[in-house]
């Protein structure tokens, strides 16, 4: 009787474990290749590197520092603008009287359905017209505009579930909507705000399409674009390329591990209704 459940359990664990290896091993291989020499990468793809010298990592750091700085700037600023604008908008849409409110909900959330690829051709000329083509400003503007719908969607869903009597009590005490937003609602929303911040950082740190098309100076390009051009620039220096890939992936993986508890909590309360 207890044979089959035990078998099933063993099978499930084997499944989880092998999936885990499938996920982790390629990433480990990537990080280890940053320690190998070119010929070792070709000759001995398995096993540990001969030395743990950080020379390739140092070279990769020097080559990607500029891209890292650019990525950092774009990610940080666009996270602040996106989450701030979305929270502000979500509050207005859920908790203030507003003429034509359903229309605005449809308009803003409808933006989620639209593909950035379709907007590509006209955006080139628009950004050139605005004189911000090939600047970090262009990416910040686009990342904000294209992520406000989704972020607003998440925050709005969360705010809809917050009890109404909070605002009413505060209004009675003479608080303005701005004060209620800042003092009461925003702190209550912190779980979903954290989820939104993490999701936006994931997006902005990794975005490639816009970054590739709207930037082309080395000082402006973000990591994903810089990495893809490294293959041609570094030529045959594979170890440095692998090291650079690892350097680019590491911060975001660490960030996820540090925040995952809050991140999942916000999502659970936000969208799992």
């Amino acid at each position: 009787m207890s044979f089959w459940p035990a078998m099933a359990r063993a099978f499930l664990w084997a499944l989880l474990l092998s999936l885990g290896v499938l996920v982790i091993y390629p990433l480990l291989w990537m990080a280890l290749n940053g320690f190998r020499s070119n010929s070792q990468i070709f000759d001995t793809p398995f096993g540990l590197p001969d030395s743990w010298a950080l020379t390739h990592y140092a070279a990769a750091w020097a080559a990607t520092r500029g891209f890292l700085a650019s990525s950092l700037l774009v990610t940080l600023v666009s996270t602040v603008t996106t989450v701030a604008i979305s929270a502000w908008t979500a509050y207005g849409l859920t908790r203030t009287p507003m003429p034509g409110q359903p229309l605005f909900v449809a308009f803003i959330l409808g933006g989620m359905m639209l593909s950035p690829t379709v907007a590509l051709v006209p955006l080139v000329r628009m950004l050139q017209g605005l004189g911000i083509y090939d600047t970090q400003g262009a990416l910040i503007l686009l990342y904000t505009a294209f992520r406000v719908p989704f972020t607003t969607f998440l925050i709005r869903a969360y705010m809809l579930d917050l009890p109404r009597d909070l605002d009413e009590a505060a209004t009675m005490d003479g608080a303005s909507p701005g004060t209620i937003f800042r003092r009461i609602i925003l702190p209550l929303c912190s779980p979903i705000l954290i989820s939104c911040i993490v999701l936006h950082i994931l997006f902005a740190w990794n975005e490639y399409l816009f970054a590739m098309i709207f930037t082309n100076s080395p000082g402006v390009q973000t990591l994903p674009v810089g990495l893809s051009s490294m293959l041609s620039k570094q030529g045959t220096n594979f170890a440095t390329l692998f090291a650079a890939m690892t350097i680019s992936a590491l911060p975001i993986v660490i960030l996820f591990f540090l925040t995952q508890r809050y991140f999942i909590r916000g999502l659970t309360e936000g969208i799992g209704k």
């Binding site: 070119n38 070709f42 293959l231 030529g235 045959t236 594979f238």
Partner: peptide, 8 residues
Amino acid sequence: IAYQSALQ
């Protein structure tokens, strides 16, 4: 194969 690998 990438041309860089071939050159290598």
